[in-house]
Amino acid sequence: MKVLVIKCGGSIIDELSPLFFESLKQLKRSGCQLVFVHGGGPDINTMLAKYEIEPVFEKGLRKTTDDVLNIVELMLAGKSNRSIVHKLTLNGINAIGLNGSDGKLLAGDFINEASLGAVGEINSVNTELLYMLLDKGLSPVLTPIAITEDGRKLNVNADMAAGAVAKALDAYSCLFVTDVKGVMKDGSIIEELTERQTQDLISEGSIYGGMIPKVETALSVLKKGINEVMIVSGKESFYNNGQFIGTKFVSEQEVMN
Rank of each mutant, 00 (worst) to 15 (best):
residue 6 I to S: 00
residue 7 K to M: 05
residue 9 G to I: 00
residue 12 I to E: 04
residue 13 I to S: 04
residue 16 L to R: 08
residue 23 S to N: 06
residue 25 K to M: 11
residue 28 K to L: 15
residue 31 G to F: 02
residue 35 V to E: 06
residue 36 F to S: 10
residue 39 G to C: 05
residue 39 G to F: 00
residue 41 G to S: 08
residue 47 M to Q: 14
residue 55 P to V: 08
residue 55 P to W: 00
residue 56 V to H: 09
residue 59 K to V: 06
residue 60 G to V: 12
residue 65 T to Q: 07
residue 71 I to K: 03
residue 72 V to G: 04
residue 73 E to G: 03
residue 78 G to T: 08
residue 78 G to F: 12
residue 79 K to A: 12
residue 82 R to I: 15
residue 85 V to M: 10
residue 87 K to N: 13
residue 97 G to W: 06
residue 102 D to H: 13
residue 106 L to P: 02
residue 109 D to L: 13
residue 109 D to Q: 12
residue 109 D to N: 13
residue 110 F to Y: 15
residue 128 E to V: 10
residue 130 L to A: 10
residue 130 L to P: 08
residue 138 L to C: 12
residue 138 L to D: 08
residue 139 S to Y: 07
residue 140 P to D: 11
residue 150 D to Q: 10
residue 151 G to L: 08
residue 156 V to Y: 02
residue 158 A to I: 00
residue 159 D to G: 08
residue 160 M to H: 13
residue 160 M to W: 09
residue 162 A to T: 00
residue 163 G to H: 00
residue 167 K to Y: 05
residue 170 D to E: 15
residue 171 A to V: 05
residue 175 L to T: 03
residue 176 F to G: 01
residue 192 E to H: 02
residue 194 T to L: 00
residue 195 E to H: 05
residue 209 G to K: 09
residue 210 G to I: 02
residue 215 V to T: 13
residue 216 E to V: 02
residue 220 S to V: 00
residue 223 K to Q: 12
residue 226 I to E: 04
residue 226 I to A: 00
residue 228 E to C: 05
residue 231 I to W: 01
residue 233 S to A: 09
residue 241 N to D: 14
residue 241 N to Q: 14
residue 248 K to A: 01
residue 248 K to F: 02
residue 249 F to K: 00
residue 249 F to G: 00
residue 252 E to T: 04
residue 253 Q to E: 14
residue 254 E to D: 13
residue 254 E to L: 13
